[in-house]
Design a protein around this nucleic acid. Structure first.
Lengths: 332, 332
DNA sequence: CTGTTAGCGCGTTCAA
DNA sequence: TTGAACGCGCTAACAG
């Protein structure tokens, strides 16, 4: 049984003032006499009144809501980004409205929904944004920020870590440690993160007179990464080092090397990951990896979003944040 | 620069019909002539019109929004629950509005915000709900569902797994495998999940003439669980088995046993966890654990929520879903 | 089936 | 400082 919520008019009546006086009591900047203010607040408390922010949004044209589009919450890295973004925005009075999109076919329906719900901004965490919708958002003046996805479109803020440099470091490091047959386990094929890491990695190998020994796709998933590892070791001679496009796959690679192929890490095979997720530091793995500045990336994105919402200034900046190599025991 | 969105009135004008005709075109159940419908849709497409769901909500008193309150997204188990809940609700046209509450002090501000935003329901994932707010929600007829938190209050749906039985199984299993000095690493002290698992565990030990060898709190956190493990092994003789209140801690326990204490699992020490998270099946751990029916728990909660929203029937049911023991290699 | 009318609850003018 | 009046964009009655 839904009871009808208390309205400002009911409060006004009880307090013996006008409805607009009640409204002013709940607007920070409005001017109101202290004693009418008290009368109103007393009445509000008695009735259990809360301003209806839906009605407020209709007038102010601001829902104080940011739509966040994600494709995978089972990846702890993005879960943590979501956590971080939610807390940061909450401090500014904004909340996240969550949209999950596994495949691309839904995505246009999702974007339509976001528009209807009047989100003040859109945050995309490693999710794809069709350029037709990017266009629509820019035209409507809805701020958009992408984290870890690059899109060839003007007017949307984009933040990513320096994937190329990270990949380059991985290649250089493996060569420096004396590995010779270095292979790559890729992430999702179309993703900019995986491709940029790959290109940096290949550039490092080329710069040092090496070439990539073999490559398989792990699709950023555990089982696919395991299959990729098996595939890599069918060729002779097999690789003696593997660069995986993220830590989640790197851990799967290590497990497969040890449990299925009976190989030692780092003696028989060196492994480098990407992200520096918590699991990378666990003693069972001690994964050499490249750290992404998770919190800074999120902060940067939310800042751009908020400033664009509040000032209307569109920067459309493409920010690259530096990565930090973390050397542990998975390379000799 | 925010452009003013297109309104139904503008569409009506262009299509040469009334504003309410436009409205009907976007209401599934309204009756409208096919040819006026086409005229309207053409005009809408030309102008890029989308119905404003804020305005719609104001009238229909339904925001098609569920507030979800979480305390920790860094725990993959709850991240996955969130993922699951979001997708399920999305299929019914609802979306999740995310509220993060680390400590309890914010919680009253958060609940106030939820009420103002007119959420159609509230889903709490292992987050605390003060009973004064539970009361307020019930009085206002706002459906509430809790997952993995028990609260002494009528009228809110609660779903949890059978923690007691799971704990009981853990105790029995360790005894059956010949362990004799069995210790417990607890989760968050006030949490019902940890307490119920603990009680089941203690009951099993008592039923078989054993008692708990030692107990430390791991606070459901990795570092705390590592400290707890060290503390357990200061006493002589040390435990020869550990039941940890969740997998996340159990993995930390195993890492600490091996890397710091030089002990073997399961030969020197047996370990049992709780949850059956993906990491439990990794070859480095092969953790014997108790599986919670994650998806069913979420499904049950969202179903209750939706049926209460749509029919107004308050069940306030307390559901216990069965757990499934998973035997792997961390016990002999 | 269609247009007219009346609100939903609140912020925001404008006189007083 | 306050209250009356208006309107945000839309749905839901009602009469035609």
């Amino acid at each position: 049984m839904k009871k009808r919520p208390v309205t400002s008019r009911q409060v006004a009546e009880l307090a013996g003032v006008s409805q607009s006086a009640v409204s002013r009591c709940f607007s920070p900047k409005a001017s109101i006499a202290p004693k009418t203010r008290e009368k109103v607040l007393a009445a509000a408390r008695e009735l259990g009144y809360r301003p209806n922010s839906i009605a407020r949004s209709l007038i102010t044209r601001s829902s104080r809501t940011i739509a966040v589009v994600m494709s995978q919450l089972d990846n702890p890295f993005y879960a943590q980004m979501l956590d971080c973004a939610a807390r940061q925005l909450q401090q500014h009075g904004y909340h996240l409205l969550l949209f999950m999109s596994r495949d691309d076919e839904q995505s246009s329906a999702i974007m339509a929904d976001i528009l209807q719900r009047q989100a003040d901004g859109i945050l995309m965490l490693a999710a794809r944004l069709s350029s037709s919708f990017a266009q629509e958002c820019v035209e409507r003046g809805i701020p958009v920020a992408l984290i870890n996805r690059t899109v060839t479109f003007e007017g949307v803020s984009q933040v990513a870590s320096d994937n190329h440099r990270g990949g380059y470091w991985a290649g250089e490091w493996l060569i420096a440690r004396g590995y010779e047959r270095i292979a790559f386990v890729a992430g999702v094929a179309q993703s900019s993160t995986s491709n940029e890491r790959r290109e940096g990695f290949l550039a490092a190998l080329a710069d040092h007179g090496h070439h990539c020994w073999a490559e398989e796709s792990g699709d950023y998933q555990r089982t696919a990464a395991q299959a990729a590892t098996r595939a890599l070791f069918t060729r002779t001679p097999p690789p003696d080092a593997i660069f995986a496009a993220n830590d989640h796959m790197a851990v799967a690679v290590i497990d497969t090397l040890r449990a299925e192929l009976g190989l030692r890490v780092p003696e028989d095979v060196g492994v480098v990951g990407f992200d520096n997720m918590p699991v990378a530091s666990w003693p069972s793995y001690r994964l050499t990896t490249i750290q992404q500045p998770l919190e800074e990336m999120v902060t940067h994105a939310t800042q751009r979003l908020l400033e664009q919402i509040e000032t209307g200034i569109v920067t459309g900046e493409r920010k690259r944040l530096p990565v930090v190599p973390i050397v542990r025991g998975s390379t000799r």
